[in-house]
Amino acid sequence: MVLENMEIYNLFDISFDKKELISFVGGGGKTTSLFKLSKELKSKGKKILVTTTTAIYFPYKEEYDKIIIDSSSKIIQKLINIKNETVTIIGSRVSKEDKLLGIKEEIIEEIFNKEIFDYILVEADGSKRKPIKAPAEHEPVIPKNSYKTIGVIGLDALGTKINEENVHRPELFCNITESRINDIIDEEKITKIIINEKGLFKGTSKESKKYVLLNKMDDEKTKQNALKIADLVIKSNFKVDGIIAASMKFYDGFRAEKIIK
């Protein structure tokens, strides 16, 4: 393995020559990672759409240039004249909990096909701010033409117990990882949730490229934990296009290293 410090768009092999729809699933930093990527793409002169098929907490004003809330298909018409170097957010409505609720995946697919934006970034999963999760039957909700799927796991899950406090849907997590409630989460269990067909990348199309983002790499210990997980994933022969260890903190800068086979 080789480690390289890279810009965010390089971590996910994003090309400036083609338009992409990218979905984020899992837990432990999806929203932060998504908005950091959108900011970087905007700085490159690109036009970005941010949305969700589930729900996200209402974004801070500094994260976007324009926000449109509309639950109808007429929302597409409102997007046509958006300028370059902008981040636009769309949602269907705002909940009582101040969450921006999602758009139907069919509408996102239609927007992408009209090539209005250079990049569409979709939060396609919910985790109730837990660092790790197992998806329920109805999760995640990934648009069919998603070119890349980024599966996020918080490394701060390591060493914690499998319970409601640390894991979103702990019973399902136990089923997938062959564990019991209150067992300790280790690198092997995280690897199982990554590679299992009912785990992190559940519902991802065969055509979509898969990237694992091991977030909250805050020190040398968590870096070594990330390397061990990556090694286990590689040895499992699970097909993945990139494994990234990162610290995608909201207010600070970020640091990330791409683990290359």
Score class of each variant (00 low, 15 high):
160 T>S: 12
131 P>G: 09
150 I>P: 00
145 N>A: 11
104 K>R: 15
153 I>F: 12
125 D>Y: 14
153 I>K: 01
142 I>A: 05
171 E>K: 15
167 V>N: 07
107 I>C: 05
127 S>C: 04
171 E>F: 15
169 R>V: 06
129 R>I: 13
160 T>F: 06
167 V>K: 02
106 E>T: 13
164 E>G: 08
130 K>C: 14
108 I>D: 04
145 N>H: 12
97 E>D: 15
155 L>S: 03
155 L>Q: 01
110 E>K: 11
99 K>V: 12
127 S>H: 02
151 G>F: 07
111 I>D: 00
166 N>F: 12
145 N>W: 08
122 V>M: 05
141 V>F: 08
112 F>T: 07
123 E>G: 05
170 P>W: 03
138 H>C: 09
125 D>M: 13
136 A>T: 14
105 E>V: 10
120 I>K: 01
158 L>W: 06
125 D>R: 08
149 T>E: 14
142 I>K: 03
166 N>G: 06
123 E>F: 11
101 L>D: 06
114 K>I: 02
125 D>E: 14
148 K>Y: 04
108 I>G: 03
124 A>Y: 02
148 K>W: 02
138 H>S: 09
149 T>W: 04
129 R>M: 14
135 P>E: 09
130 K>P: 07
108 I>M: 12
155 L>Y: 03
145 N>M: 10
158 L>Q: 09
107 I>V: 14
145 N>F: 11
99 K>D: 10
144 K>M: 03
111 I>P: 00
122 V>W: 04
145 N>I: 15
123 E>K: 02
120 I>D: 01
162 I>T: 07
136 A>E: 11
160 T>Y: 06
144 K>Q: 07
164 E>N: 15
118 D>V: 07
115 E>S: 15
